[in-house]
Simulated scan of single mutants.
Amino acid sequence: MNILILGYGKMGKIISQLAMNRGHQIVAKINIENVSDLENLDRDKVDVAIEFSQPDAAVGNIKWCLENDVPVVVGTTGWLDHKDEVSKWCKEKNGSLFYASNFSIGVNIFFKVNAFLARLMQDQNAYQASVEEVHHTEKRDAPSGTAITLAEGLIQNNNRYRDWKLRDEEEPLAEGTLPIVSKRIDPAPGTHIVQYVSKVDDITIQHEAHSREGFALGAVMVAEWLPGKKGVLSMNDFLDF
């Protein structure tokens, strides 16, 4: 396949190398320094785009793909305030948009474990739930998209919680609010912890990434799968959970 890389930071570089190792061609690598090249790109030479840029660039990159009928795999987080708008564009253009907060197969299994545990804990009022995430210091958005997905999965499956909030230790939490703690420590590629704490014991589930390669490989595998499909898709569609 001919792949367009939108965002050529650490993840973009790993994705490019893995894609080439799997026999694909990289037709262009677009970042902030050469973003004007996107307008001159021959769309007919692109089979799929993989978008791992920055929150302030993601929406424009996605819009270009949808307007040019390029299936796009999006791993950038921090732009989800625009997700409804972007999803509407996708439907209007009959496009192909695949978004995941995390492309790791292990993390997506972890999402399912989190939802199952949340249902089990629904009537256990002695326990207070929390989510914690640890990433490298170059990660700009906090909380991470993965932490938000975990929080939303917990809230959807446990009616004791109505919303989530990035934890400020000086500010008391309102009842029904799920705290998220974000830490930035190098060289951590990503650790996510869901914990239920009571006076007598704790229940903890955790996913720890050893490198970015698992995220990158998942994104390439999705890019191989996406062409020919339409609509707003997710890892539930890809993994057929």
Results as ranks from 00 to 15, higher is better:
114 N>T: 14
139 K>A: 11
188 A>E: 11
15 I>S: 03
213 E>V: 13
221 M>G: 08
207 H>S: 14
24 H>F: 03
237 D>M: 07
182 S>V: 06
29 K>N: 10
137 T>I: 11
181 V>G: 11
63 K>A: 11
147 A>I: 06
141 D>S: 14
45 K>T: 14
119 R>K: 14
37 D>M: 13
54 Q>K: 14
118 A>Q: 03
130 S>P: 01
211 S>C: 09
195 Q>R: 13
200 V>R: 13
44 D>W: 15
212 R>E: 15
234 S>R: 05
48 V>Y: 02
171 E>S: 11
85 E>K: 10
15 I>A: 01
68 N>C: 06
85 E>V: 10
205 I>P: 08
3 I>K: 01
52 F>C: 14
98 F>E: 03
45 K>Y: 07
202 D>I: 08
73 V>R: 08
26 I>P: 00
95 G>N: 03
23 G>C: 03
111 F>S: 08
191 T>Q: 12
74 V>I: 09
166 L>K: 09
223 A>H: 07
152 E>R: 12
145 G>M: 07
203 I>P: 04
60 G>P: 08
15 I>K: 02
203 I>D: 00
122 Q>L: 05
172 P>T: 05
81 D>T: 12
4 L>M: 00
221 M>A: 15
162 R>Q: 13
226 L>S: 04
190 G>V: 07
24 H>Y: 01
148 I>Y: 07
53 S>E: 04
67 E>F: 15
160 R>P: 05
178 L>C: 09
167 R>Y: 13
100 A>T: 01
184 R>Q: 07
207 H>T: 09
85 E>I: 10
120 L>T: 14
7 G>W: 03
7 G>S: 09
104 S>W: 01
64 W>G: 07
117 L>D: 06
205 I>C: 09
138 E>N: 13
188 A>D: 13
220 V>C: 04
103 F>E: 04
21 N>W: 02
217 L>W: 05
218 G>D: 01
173 L>N: 01
178 L>I: 09
67 E>M: 15
35 V>E: 12
207 H>C: 15
41 L>R: 02
83 K>G: 10
15 I>Q: 07
217 L>C: 07
185 I>E: 10
10 K>V: 11
23 G>K: 00
170 E>N: 15
158 N>R: 01
138 E>V: 12
241 F>W: 09
90 C>A: 09
234 S>Y: 08
43 R>E: 12
14 I>R: 10
214 G>P: 07
75 G>R: 04
219 A>W: 03
127 Y>V: 08
83 K>Y: 12
117 L>V: 12
25 Q>R: 15
8 Y>I: 04
210 H>V: 10
197 V>P: 02
47 D>V: 04
189 P>L: 11
229 K>S: 09
144 S>Q: 07
98 F>V: 02
210 H>E: 15
38 L>Q: 04
47 D>C: 08
41 L>Y: 01
47 D>L: 00
6 L>W: 02
78 G>N: 02
102 N>I: 04
96 S>N: 08
33 E>K: 15
176 G>V: 01
102 N>M: 15
12 G>T: 00
28 A>E: 08
162 R>N: 14
237 D>Y: 06
133 E>A: 14
195 Q>L: 05
38 L>K: 05
19 A>L: 05
107 V>S: 11
21 N>H: 09
141 D>T: 15
66 L>K: 03
129 A>K: 02
150 L>F: 03
103 F>T: 00
78 G>T: 05
120 L>Q: 13
